[in-house]
Design a protein around this nucleic acid. Structure first.
Length: 96
DNA sequence: ATTTTGACTACTG
DNA sequence: ACAGTAGCCAAAA
């Protein structure tokens, strides 16, 4: 894992706005990460100061259940345990 | 050097 | 909707 990719992944995650989410694959695509797994790995190792609750699986489920209350706190409506990706998924061209 | 272990995804039945 | 499988890739054992 080279330093540059690592930091790019962190930067991309930091750009996800409050009230939106992005998938691991989204971050990977934005940052040239070799695989979505790497994004998960970076979050585990060096994600303590990032909004990691905004990174979810592409099907709307979350890796860590505590993300749900945190995201609801940011204003997302999540009736069950799955996030409505069509509604909340963030794209970098939305105004950032 | 090989195997195992994940904050992953896509495909199949 | 749900389980199994196969690709994926860095780290640690």
């Amino acid at each position: 894992m080279d330093e540059e990719t690592h930091e790019r992944i962190r930067a991309a995650i930091a750009r996800v706005p409050r009230g939106r989410v992005a998938s691991y694959g989204d971050i990977a695509a934005m940052t040239d990460a070799p695989s979505p797994r790497i994004v998960g790995w970076v979050l585990k190792e060096d994600g303590g100061d990032l909004p990691w609750q905004r990174i979810v699986r592409t099907d709307g489920t979350v890796a860590k259940p505590q993300q749900l209350p945190m995201l609801r706190d940011e204003g997302l409506e999540i009736p069950g345990d799955k996030i409505d990706m069509k509604r909340y998924r963030w794209a970098p061209d939305e105004g950032d």
